[in-house]
């Protein structure tokens, strides 16, 4: 197990190098420069390029990125917060933390809501409850988060005035409500659908019949015997979801004006702020890689038949 994790960490390192390389060349392929404005002259741009080493050939720049990253140096912002270290922008100013905070709550809500709803739908298959849930979850999967977020804003902030319009830095619990809800809508509905499908599959298995023949109560059969067997597809989805919920919060962060990472990521691309683009990409890629590792280990915990390494067989 330890060996397996070590192996995966080594593999993860190469994955990250690859992602950073691809991002580096892609971002340099976009026309434009961080120093290009309406007023800047070609001389000024050339001077700034020379100052930050952007005048050197791409492979040289790439090598510099890689070696600096190994030392934990992500460079400095070229434009958005000129001269500030990228590590400080990402971790020091609470951006990452804000996104994580909203993201984790949304993830938690999606799981706590999605899995039981899926169980209920599967258990009441074909009945009214199932139909209502199917309509609701299809709605949740289909509606874009900005529509839902705007709807929430209109109802709870503008008309009812229960919740603040701007969430900003999430100082009060009330400011969490709408961002978390809008972020959790899609994943919770998707998880509910996923759980329903795999639960229905599990319910028709022979071991469920055995459990009934043993005289177990329905609740125990559903939540002990069927649920654990139907969790595999859900876990598979949870890995990428956890990462994307943090990164994909751009729309929601913009709607509620939360100065999070998602929002900053998009503006860094628009501004061609190369070191910030590289920094955010690598951090998010690392997050996804870690989540995938966590998912693979979670498989093993949920289903003892799964072996992580060939040797364990």
């Amino acid at each position: 197990m330890t060996l397996y994790v070590l192996k995966r960490i080594v593999a993860a390192f190469f994955t990250l190098v690859l992602i950073a390389t691809i991002t580096f060349f892609l971002m340099n392929a976009i026309p434009g420069s961080p120093f290009m404005t309406d007023k800047s002259t070609p001389e000024q741009i050339a001077k700034a390029n020379a100052k930050y080493g952007l005048d050197q050939p791409l492979p040289v720049q790439w090598w510099r990125y890689m070696t600096n990253y190994l030392r934990g140096d992500m460079g400095v912002s070229l434009k958005m917060q000129e001269g500030t270290e990228v590590t400080k922008i990402l971790f020091g100013q609470g951006k990452f933390e804000l996104s994580i905070r909203v993201g984790l709550w949304a993830l938690l809500l999606a799981i706590v809501l999605g899995i039981p709803l899926g169980c209920i739908a599967a258990y009441n298959r074909g009945k009214a409850v199932d139909s209502v849930l199917r309509v609701l979850t299809t709605f949740g999967v289909a509606v874009p988060s900005f529509v839902f977020a705007t709807l929430l804003l209109l109802i709870f902030a503008v008309h009812l005035k229960w919740l603040p319009v701007l969430s900003n830095s999430l100082e009060t619990p009330a400011s969490y409500v709408m961002p978390v809800l809008s972020l959790a809508l899609y994943p919770s509905c998707y998880i509910a659908k996923l759980t329903r499908t795999s639960m229905l599959d599990a319910i028709n298995q022979d071991y469920i019949r055995t459990a009934r023949a043993k005289g177990l109560k329905t609740r125990r059969i559903i939540f002990k015997h069927a649920l654990r067997n139907s969790l595999i597809p859900v876990i598979t989805y949870l890995g990428p979801l956890a990462a994307s919920i943090v990164t994909g919060g751009f729309v929601v962060e913009t709607t509620f004006s939360i100065p999070g990472l998602g929002k900053y990521f998009i503006s860094s691309i628009l501004n061609r702020d190369y070191p910030v683009i590289m920094g955010t990409t690598v951090v998010l890629a690392a997050l996804i890689v870690i989540m995938n590792l966590v998912v693979d280990i979670a498989y093993k915990i949920v289903d003892p038949r799964i072996t992580l390494t060939a040797k364990e067989d």
């Binding site: 298995q205 022979d206 019949r209 023949a213 043993k214």
Partner: peptide, 16 residues
């Protein structure tokens, strides 16, 4: 009253 079934390979819950 208890019951046993045809296919013992699938009649026990694999995760417990």
């Amino acid at each position: 009253a208890s019951m046993i079934f045809q296919n013992p390979m699938t009649c026990m819950n694999p995760v417990y």
